[in-house]
Design a protein around this nucleic acid. Structure first.
Lengths: 241, 241
DNA sequence: CGTATGTTTGACCGTCGTCAATTGTAGTGG
DNA sequence: CCACTACAATTGACGACGGTCAAACATACG
C-alpha cells in the first residue's frame, strides 16, 4: 500500500501546479474562480480502472493531476487500438464531443488523480469567456497535430524510429512538468507500446534490447534512463531514402 | 480563362446544396445570413495549386464546394506525409488553430471551388451563436475521430485492408453527396494514396491489380468501379489474429 | 514530337510478424 | 514467508509481406 505521493492535493486551480499546463491562460482571478467552481476534483483512482467506456454518453473532459492514462478504441473485429497516452497536465476525452458519445475507452495505467471538467457547464461559462472557448479549440487542435505526428510515424518509420520517437515524446512531456527528461518510469506495458506504435510485443522488446546494446538507453523493466539523447534523436528522425 | 464546370456557383449558403453537409445546423434565417456575410466564396482554383503552406499564419478554415484537396505536412527529414483528402462538403484547415500557424500544407488535386471562413470573424459571431461554436467543435472532433481511424488502419492493417478501407471511405463520402457510391474517379495519384496509407506506389498498384483479379473492382487508371462492395468490406475489416 | 511524370509488373531481399520456449515479475492464498 | 499461478518480458528460428531496385509502358504537357 502506497503512498504519500499525492499529499499535495490541490483544492483549486489557483494553487495547482499543473494549471500552467492545462490552463495556459491569462485569466483574471474572478474568471478563474468561476471556472474553478465547475471543476470536480476526484480522489486518486487505482491502476487499471475505467474512466469512461466507448459508447458512454459524453459528459466531461479530464485533466490529469498525477498518474497516467491510456485511451483506446475497439475496432470492428473486436481488437484494441491504443490511441494515446496521457500524462499529468494533459487533457483527454475530446473524442466524445461529436455524437455526444465517447468513441474511445480510457483507463488508468497507474494510480491517477483527475480533474473532471463537465462539458455542459464549461460551455455555459465559456460563452461569457471567449478566451476560454478559444483555448479549448486550441487544445483540440493540439490533439489533432499530435495525432498527425503519430500518423506520420506509423506511415513511414521503422520499428526503431517509432520506439525512439515515443521515448523522446515522453521525455519532452515529462520535462514540461519539470521532471527529469532522461530518467523516468514507463507507465505502460510493452504490449501497450506495441499496440500504440503498430508493432508486436516481441519487436518492441527487441528494439529496447538493441537500444541498450547501442548504449542509447539503460532499461530495467519499466525504468528508463536515456544515456544518449542525441543518438536517440538521430534514430527517430532518420531520413527515409 | 474560366471553366464552365461550376455554373452552379451559389451566391450564398441558403442556396448551396453543400450546406447540408458543412452546416448541418438548425440556424434560423437571420443567423444564417450573418454567417453568410463573413464567408468568402472564391473562384475555382486550378489543379495543383496551394491553398496554404505550412508555416503560413492561420486566417481561415475552408469548405469545399467542388473538387478535391489534399493536406500534408513536411517532416523533419523533408519528406511529405499526406494527412488527409477532402471532398465537397468537407471542411479543412483546423491545423492552424493552435499557434495561429498552419502546420500542414494544402493543395488542390483538381479544379476546386472553396468557401473561405475567416476565423477571426467566425469567432466574433459565434459568441452570440453558441450553437455555431458547438458545431465547430464537433467538426474538429470529427476530424479527430477520422484521424484515429487512420491511426488504427496504419497500426494494424495489411496493404489490402488499407487500400480497401480508403476506397470504402471515399465511396461512403461520395454517397453523402448523393453521388454514386460505386463508380467514381480518384482525385489523387497512386503516390498520394501510398503516402497516405504508409505504402509504396508499387504496393498500391499491385493491390489495385489484385483487387481487379478478384473481381472486387474495375479500374482504368483513375476511374474506379466497385463491383463487389461486400467483398471489399470483408477485406477492409478482416480480423487480425 | 520529345521529355517528364505516372503506372504497372517482375525479381530479390530485409524487416518485422508468427510461433515457441524460457525467464522474470506481480498478485494471491496457504 | 513461501508456494503457486497468471501475466509480462525476453530471446530464438523461420517465413511472409511489402520495400527496393529496375525496366517497360502509358499518359500528360510543352
Amino acid at each position: 500500500m502506497r503512498s504519500p505521493i499525492l499529499n499535495i492535493q490541490p483544492s483549486n486551480c489557483h494553487n495547482c501546479r499543473m494549471s500552467a499546463l492545462c490552463l495556459p491562460l491569462a485569466l483574471d482571478s474572478s474568471s478563474l474562480d468561476r471556472l474553478d467552481k465547475v471543476i470536480e476534483r476526484g480522489r486518486p483512482i487505482h491502476k487499471n480502472k475505467y474512466i469512461f467506456h466507448g459508447g458512454d454518453p459524453f459528459r466531461a473532459v479530464y485533466a490529469i493531476r498525477s498518474g497516467a492514462v491510456k485511451s483506446f478504441c475497439i475496432s470492428d473485429d473486436g481488437s484494441e487500438q491504443v490511441t494515446g497516452f496521457y500524462l499529468p497536465g494533459e487533457i483527454f476525452g475530446w473524442d466524445g464531443i461529436d455524437n455526444n458519445t465517447h468513441s474511445n475507452t480510457a483507463t488508468t495505467l497507474e494510480t491517477t488523480a483527475l480533474c473532471e471538467i463537465p462539458f455542459a457547464r464549461f460551455e455555459e461559462i465559456s460563452r461569457t469567456m471567449p478566451i476560454l472557448q478559444k483555448h479549448f479549440m486550441r487544445l483540440m487542435a493540439k490533439e489533432l497535430t499530435s495525432d498527425q505526428e503519430l500518423i506520420g510515424l506509423l506511415a513511414k518509420s521503422s520499428a526503431e524510429e517509432r520506439v525512439a520517437s515515443l521515448l523522446l515524446s515522453l521525455s519532452s512531456r515529462l520535462k514540461r512538468q519539470h521532471l527529469s527528461a532522461t530518467q523516468f518510469r514507463l507507465p505502460m506495458s510493452r504490449a501497450d507500446i506495441g499496440n500504440y506504435l503498430g508493432l508486436t510485443v516481441e519487436t518492441v522488446s527487441r528494439v529496447f534490447s538493441r537500444f541498450q546494446s547501442f548504449d542509447l538507453i539503460l532499461c530495467d523493466k519499466k525504468e528508463i534512463e536515456i544515456i544518449n539523447l542525441n543518438g536517440l534523436s538521430a534514430l527517430a528522425h532518420k531520413p527515409k531514402v
